[in-house]
């Protein structure tokens, strides 16, 4: 049972960090399928908690070859762009989204689509909470579709990435979800 988001936001940062539910490799290896029938409106997804440091930011810049100085050059960030510090990449946040949806739908569901906005500047020292909540679900062409509200909040409750997502989950007695994924007609 995932700690409710509102409850998490009332905790001290270190306590939030201790409630981190990011799975390790074995957790992902053993992940049990969530079926469409298991899901109810209002259900909360696991909370992925991050504590980005300058090293994390530099590692991401290097991995994707993003040379923008606002992410690693503190002097440039403070004095040229007048930012409060070096900034957490929007590209990292938007890469967490499909990872988060993949993990929740593993092993045989599908993290179909998401849309989100980038708000707020995130800096090293922030505690970041990737969260999701079921808003509705429907069945179509023998696939279970689940609509989610998603986001990434700071420890202060500031929403930095409000968004929505749609994932596909298998029905308990349904066929496999097609792969490559084929959206239902009219979607």
């Amino acid at each position: 049972m995932s700690t409710p988001l509102e409850e998490l936001l009332n905790m001290e940062p270190e306590e939030i960090w201790r409630r981190n539910e990011r799975p390790d490799a074995d957790g992902l290896r053993r992940k049990a399928q969530i079926y469409y029938e298991d899901v109810n409106e209002g259900d909360e997804l696991p909370k992925y908690v991050y504590k980005p440091t300058p090293t994390h930011l530099f590692r991401w810049s290097a991995a994707i070859e993003n040379f923008h100085r606002i992410h690693y050059d503190l002097d440039f960030g403070l004095n040229h762009d007048r930012n409060p510090s070096i900034l957490v990449h929007g590209s990292w946040k938007q890469s967490v989204v499909p990872q988060y949806l993949k993990d929740w739908t593993l092993p045989n569901g599908w993290p179909w689509k998401a849309r989100f906005e980038h708000r707020a500047m995130l800096v090293p020292g922030d505690i970041l909470i990737m969260w999701g909540r079921v808003t509705s679900k429907y069945e179509k062409e023998q696939i279970g579709f689940v609509e989610l509200e998603i986001g990434m909040k700071t420890q202060d409750g500031i929403e930095s990435m409000p968004g929505t997502a749609t994932v596909a989950l298998p029905l308990r007695d349904g066929p496999p979800i097609p792969y490559p994924f084929v959206p239902p007609a009219a979607d």
């Binding site: 799975p23 290896r29 590692r59 991401w60 092993p107 792969y179």
Partner: peptide, 25 residues
């Protein structure tokens, strides 16, 4: 490897050949 480690996604589907063979992919 560099991408998924920087993302902090340890999913063995990205690096464990034997396990990957057992998945639907």
């Amino acid at each position: 490897r560099r991408f998924t480690q920087a993302l902090m996604d340890p999913d063995p589907r990205y690096w464990d050949d034997e396990f990957a063979k057992s998945t639907r992919y």
